Lab assay of single mutants.
Amino acid sequence: NQESVVAAVLIPINTALTVGMMTTRVVSPTGIPAEDIPRLISMQVNQVVPMGTTLMPDMVKGYAP
């Protein structure tokens, strides 16, 4: 099972992602793959992401799977 990126904290809208904001977990449905965390650093979320929420591609500005 592939791990997906999950919010480790509440991430406010338009916040640039940092390593500490993200964790990984096997979830269903799957979100952004864990191995993409290095690509996500400094990208901004386009909505509020509650802690424990799986990051989906459409939540991150400029992210393309």
Rank of each mutant, 00 (worst) to 15 (best):
M51H: 15
K61R: 10
S28N: 10
I32G: 00
E3Q: 04
P50S: 14
M59A: 10
Q44L: 15
V27C: 03
Q44C: 03
T15Y: 08
Q2L: 15
N46V: 07
V9F: 14
A7L: 02
A7Y: 01
V49S: 01
D36H: 11
A64F: 12
I41V: 07
M56D: 04
A64G: 14
T24W: 11
L17V: 03
L10K: 06
G20H: 15
I37V: 13
A7K: 00
N1E: 15
T24V: 05
I32P: 01
M51V: 11
Q47H: 15
Q2H: 10
I13Y: 06
V5W: 01
T30M: 15
T53H: 08
V48Q: 15
A64S: 10
E35W: 05
M51Q: 15
E3R: 02
G52P: 01
P12T: 10
V6C: 03
G20A: 15
Q47G: 11
L10S: 12
I37R: 15
I41G: 05
L17A: 01
L40K: 01
V6K: 02
A8F: 06
S42Y: 12
I41E: 12
M43A: 12
V6M: 04
A34D: 15
I11F: 01
Q44R: 11
P57V: 07
R25Y: 07
T18E: 04
L10F: 13
S4W: 04
T18V: 08
Q2C: 03
L40F: 02
V45I: 11
A7T: 11
A34T: 09
G31C: 03
Q47P: 00
I13T: 07
T23R: 05
M22P: 01
T53R: 06
P12K: 10
K61P: 13
L55G: 01
G62P: 06
L40H: 00
Q44N: 13
P33Q: 06
E3V: 04
G52L: 12
Y63T: 04
N46R: 11
V5Y: 01
N1W: 03
I11C: 02
G31Y: 02
P29N: 07
N14R: 14
G52Q: 10
I13L: 10
I13H: 13
T24S: 10
R25T: 12
V5F: 01
T24I: 05
G52Y: 08
D36C: 04
T15N: 14
V27K: 06
L40Q: 00
R25H: 15
P65G: 12
T30D: 08
